[in-house]
Every structure is written in C-alpha cells, then in structure tokens.
Design a protein around this nucleic acid. Structure first.
Lengths: 388, 388
DNA sequence: CCGATTTAGTCTATGTTGTGGACTAAATAC
DNA sequence: GTATTTAGTCCACAACATAGACTAAATCGG
C-alpha cells in the first residue's frame, strides 16, 4: 500500500525531490531547483539549507553566465560527508569499495583468494577484515559510511539478505549480512543484478536506455534495468539467462536440462580445465582456429538465447560483461548477427550489443551505488545519522 | 522523478491510502481504517466523508460483533456511482464492458464481426456505436463512467495509446483513442497485457501470486503481473512469447526467424484452415490421434518456451488463456512435464500451470479494471468529476 | 558613473492539512 | 442502573508549503 502521508513524510518526500534533482541534473541554483521541482523558492531554500547542514549538498560558487540579474549560487551534491560501502564475494576474489554521495569512487580494493568451497565463516571473516580496513580509511577521509550491500554469486532473499544457495561457492542458506557483524546496516543482493547497476552508474549509464546486462562468470546471469531501476522477478531468481533454451536437444547441462546457454557459452564450455581466460584471449589473438570456432559458436548461442530474452524483456541495449567483456571482439559479431536474423523483420529496432565499461569491480560498485541510490531516494532517514 | 509533495498532494495521497485499504481489506469501520493506515481517527473521518460525498464509498450498517463498546459503522467501496468502460478490438469480435468501482461487472457485450483487414475507420465506428450503447445504459443505471481503455491486438505506444502495427488486423499506426471520439478520457493497451490484468481482478486473482499469463490467439502473447502490477518492457513490445526460441533449427516462422513457439503452438499450427476451435476440441474429445499428437507437440513446445520465460521472469504461477484455455486438458500435461524436466533440479519450486478463469472477455474486463485501478490509486483527480 | 531593469534569494503573514486529546454516543458487563 | 469499553466528532494546535513583499547583486542604457 502507498504509505500514509503525514507532515514529516511530506518534508521527507520533498527533500528527496530536491536531492534527486541535484543528482540527475547536476549543480543547480535554488531558483532553478524551484523551477525544476515545482516547489516554491521559499521551500527550496529551506530544504537546501537542511541538505547543506547534513553535508549532502554544497554551494559551488556563483554562476555568472553573463545574463542580467543577480547571479545564482550553484548547489550540487556533496561527496565530502556521506558515503556507502560495497562488497563482493566471488569464486576467486573478494572486492570492496567506498563510493561517496556524488557517486565518485573513493576507495577500491580487490583481494584474490580462492573462496571455492571455503567455509562461509572463514571467507566472511576475510571480507570483514577488508571492510574494516575500508571503513577506517573512509573515516580518515572524513566520510560517514551510511550502509553496505554485499554482492553474492547466487539468488538472495531480498527481505533478509541471506543467500539461499551459491553453487559456485558450495554454500547453502548462509546469513551473510548477520555474520559480517559490521557496525552499520548491511544488505545483500545478487551479483548479476548489482553488476547491471554498476554499469548504469559507473559505466555507459543512461546512454544505454533500458538495458539487459549479461554477466557471464561460471554461470551466466542477466540483470534488466528499466527506467533506472532494476527489474526483479518474484523471488530474486529472475534473469537466469544461463539456462534459457538454445536447443532443446542439445548437450546435458549440470542443471538437469539439455541445451542451456551455459553449455555453449559458459566459462567451462570455453576454457579447457588447465587454461585461464588470459590464455584463451592470447590464443584468440594468435588466430588459433579451435578457440575462434568455440567463440563463434558461443556467440551464436548467446544470440539465440538473447533473442528470446529480447522478445520477453524488450530492452534498448544489451551489455556484455563478465567473461564476455574480454571476449567481446570475437563473440559480439555472431551474437549480433543472430539477433538481427531472428528479430530484424519483426522489430523496428534490434537492440545494439555493446561491451561493459566497468570491469570485474562492477558488482561491488553497483552495490555501493545502490546504497547511495537509497539515500538519495530517502535522505530524511539519514539526516540524523551520526556524523563520523 | 518523484513529484513534489504539496498539501493537496498530501491529501490526495491519503485519500488513495484510505480507498486502497477499502479496496484490499473489504469494508472497515473508521476506527479500523485508522488502525490499518496509521492515520488518526480525525483524518480518516474527514477523508471518508469526502469519499462518501463523491460516491466512492458507502456506509454499510453497524458491525455489532458482540464486543463491548459502541459498534462501528462499516464503510466499503461504493459501486453505485463511479464506473469504467473497457473495450476490445480483436480479429473476429468486438467486446465492451462497464465495471464499477467495486470491480463488479455491470454490463458486458460481445459482437462477432470480422475485423480482419477491415478499414480502421469502419471497425472503430462499430466500436463507437457499441461504446455509446454501453455509456447510455450505464447512465441509466446511475453510473458515471470516468474513463476508458481499449485492448488492441498488437504493441501500443503507452504515451499516446496509438497502435504501431496490428498484423492480424492489417493495421499500421492507427490512433485508436483519438478516432473513437468518445466524451471521456480514452487510452489503449496491448490485449495480452490487459488479459493478464483481467485474470488478476476477475479470475483467480491474488491467489496466483506473481504470474505469467499466456494469451494464445493468432499470435501468442504473455503478460507478467508482479505484486499486482503489470511489467512492461521498454516500449510495450515485451512479452512476445510467441517468438521465443523452441528449436533454432525448427520450421520457418512468419517473423523471419526459425523454430519460434508460434510455429508449434499458434492457432495456425493447430487448426486446419477449414476448421475452427470448436471442431478441434470435438476431435480431441473423440480421441482423434492426429489432433492429440498436435496438442502433445504444442504442449511440449510451450513447456520449452515457458522454461526460458521462467528462467528470466521467475513467476509463481503460469496461467494459460486464449486458445490454450479450451485446449488446457490436452496441452497442460506435456507443458508441465517439460517444465519439471527442465527446471525441477535447479529450482526449489516449479511454477504451477493453471487454466484461465476468465474467458474471451478477459482483455476488455482487464481494460475496465485498469481504469478502476487508476481511480483507486488517485481518487483526488476524480472527486471533482461530473456526476452523471 | 548612475539609475532602471532583471534575476536570486530571504522574510513574513497566511492557508491547508494532520494530530492529540477532550468530548459525546452507544454498546456490553456486572 | 452504573461502570466500562469502543466509535466517532470537535477543537485547539503544530507542521509544512505558499504568495508576495523585500533585499541583494548583477547587466543595460544613457
């Protein structure tokens, strides 16, 4: 239900409207803010005053654009006080970052460690150490970290932040947020979802329109961003592109079905057991026929699965991330050709296939960005937060 | 952007909160409403007064449940004044209905006419006559019709309500809402989307959880309902289940691709040119081997396409409507078996496949219901509407 | 160089809305 | 028949946004 609107909710809502306008339209004068939001100058002045006092906005000097009249004082988001922590647990690394309110990356650490079949408590302990280091450094920068989201490689219960199962880690039903024991609110989300948001805020962003972000790792996940917000299915199991049908009579998949995309374009299908991604890319550059054929096949299969996804989701753009980012030159051609072959006649516009602009840090950046997004959407809840 | 909250918006929001509570939780006393919404008794009393005056709510008598204390006066949605018009243009019929605020169907008319390759102006003229008849009858019942939505068999631009192309009607870029020239606000939407909403409000409804509604006609469309709201892709082209891949090397489809679901389970794939649906069902009941085999094949193909859709959308339930409703006994078995085969090992819960509870009127009912939904979500805009 | 004009931002009186608590109404409990 | 309990209304008050007057600081034109 839409919640009851009392006076305090009205104020909180308008605070969010002003902060949101600053976020989307860059620095603005109070007069321009009043124009943009439809609020009166008086109200905007009061709200801006509160935001400045809370360290969420700053005056950025007068804008004397040569026009007549008194020049306005530009007000913009301030990255000097409020910040967010993003963390990621993946199969072979841990990552963490601190992003400030203006979505500037202030700190970023990656730690290569084998977490495959590591005990949850042990892995989470290492992540806690990483997080505490980042929090201490953030405090040194004068930043007040308001919250944290952890990216996890598997479906996450949105209500609790617990991960139901992470096949690639060998985990089942682990209460990650609780076990982290950090002195701030902690939530968790699916790595594929957060990588899509990372692309939105730290990659090509709004230029993509509504986009489907494909994050191939061991499995292949996809996150859909519609009008700047993530589409989540019913229970966080949406976007499982890896098990979309490519050919119903295809090879057996570990999921029990046959002919899933993962069998054609998953990491295990492309790499030989003793080879890593760098090796494969080297072979591709050298013109190795086997490697080129495998990528051609993977790209075509990806195109088939994506054509189904486009029919169902209807995105403007498709972004290839994860393992498909380094393989993009070899995979995107066949994928795009297949998309055009299957969709070109029916649709006025076939989605473009582009490469992700954020690397492996996409998920942790998206996690921190999501915290920032929540703060901007409801700054009232953070105005009274302790300042360092 | 979230819109600025002024005093009038605060009041409008609270009106919506109260009306929404009445809609979802049935008749309630003012005291119970205050409890449910978090508003004070005073405020609830004032808001309820306005709603009663506007004819959107009525007192339904005291609830003397034997408890101590003064008995409360139950207040419920009133279906006596505000209503909505739903229309549908399909290949071989026109349909129209009037639904009141309490989502009771007050009037329902279907008109069998061949609209395939009929000139838009002519077909819309017939629809206008139908609409005007319904509006006159509604006025006779004391109903004030606040708005209208038209269901169309093809992708619809949400901003304008114009249909871009309707292959089964042979239409391109027709401004249906404008051409109707009705004396009330008219919008349009995709037939598959509205049929899904029809199932939500006039069929099995909330018991389904988040569901995917498959509406097979000539083409096969799907509408996804998440938390009581429709998921729309980027431009209203989402949910094209008919062109999801079943087998990439399958037969040529009219869309230019190969092996689309439509070629296995579309109306044209199941019926011989000289046969209609009734004939097919009769043959199935008689045990005709060819017909049974065709349905088995269609059901399996549907299961394959749906397994991809479930991987991407993650619904709780799948509802089969349109041509799949009469064919349900023969199609659902193979479809469900295929879903279990492909998804059973990976997912804790495979979506149940159920039959639609609303017939061919689903889309026009959903259209009217959507208007009602909008009124309930923002009653403020209709409080000053002319009363009959 | 100085007044007219224009735009930015603040200040003050006012209006709308929701709230808490006092008050009235109408039932059951003893 | 009185005490108790719950429903609903009334009234004084508080929170917030607003309109318009007012001050501040620039450009324009002579």
């Amino acid at each position: 239900m839409t919640h009851a609107v009392r006076h305090d909710a009205m104020r909180a809502g308008n605070l969010a409207v002003v902060l949101g306008a600053l976020d989307r339209r860059g620095p603005l004068t109070r007069a321009a803010l009043a124009e943009a939001t439809g609020l009166s100058k008086t109200t905007v002045s009061k709200l801006v005053g509160d935001l400045i006092e809370a360290g969420m906005a700053v005056e950025r000097g007068t804008v004397g654009d040569g026009e007549r009249g008194r020049p306005g004082m530009a007000v913009g988001l301030s990255g000097h006080r409020v910040a967010a922590l993003g963390l990621e647990i993946n199969v072979d690394y841990l990552a963490g970052c601190v992003v400030d309110l203006s979505r500037t990356v202030r700190l970023l650490r990656t730690q290569a460690t084998g977490n495959r079949s590591g005990a949850p408590a042990e892995v989470i302990g290492r992540l806690r150490t990483l997080a505490e280091t980042l929090l201490a450094e953030a405090a040194g920068l004068g930043l007040s970290v308001a919250g944290c989201i952890v990216a996890l490689p598997g479906p996450v219960d949105q209500a609790t932040g617990n991960i139901h199962r992470a096949p690639n880690l060998g985990w089942r039903d682990v209460e990650v947020p609780g076990l982290l024991e950090l002195p701030l609110p902690v939530l968790a989300d699916n790595e594929a979802n957060l990588a899509a948001l990372g692309e939105l805020w730290f990659g090509s962003g709004a230029a993509l329109g509504d986009f489907l972000h494909v994050s191939g790792e061991i499995g292949i996940g996809a996150g859909l961003v519609v009008e700047g917000a993530l589409f989540r299915g019913a229970h966080g199991y949406a976007g499982e592109l890896g098990h979309v049908v490519v050919s119903p009579d295809g090879p057996q998949c570990r999921c029990g079905a046959t002919g899933c995309l993962e069998r054609y374009a998953g990491q295990d299908a492309l790499l030989t057991p003793e080879e890593n991604m760098t090796g494969l890319v080297a072979r591709l550059h050298a013109g190795d026929a086997t490697a080129l054929a495998a990528c051609e096949k993977a790209g075509t299969a990806l195109g088939v699965a994506l054509s189904s996804a486009v029919n169902l989701f209807d995105p403007d753009t498709i972004v290839l991330g994860g393992i498909f980012a380094p393989l993009f030159p070899w995979v995107s051609g066949p994928a795009e050709a297949t998309l055009h072959r299957r969709l070109g006649q029916m649709r006025a516009r076939v989605p473009a296939v582009v490469v992700s602009q954020v690397g492996a840090d996409g998920a942790s950046l998206g996690a921190a960005g999501q915290v920032i997004q929540r703060i901007i959407a409801d700054p009232g809840a953070f105005l009274l937060a302790p300042q360092r």
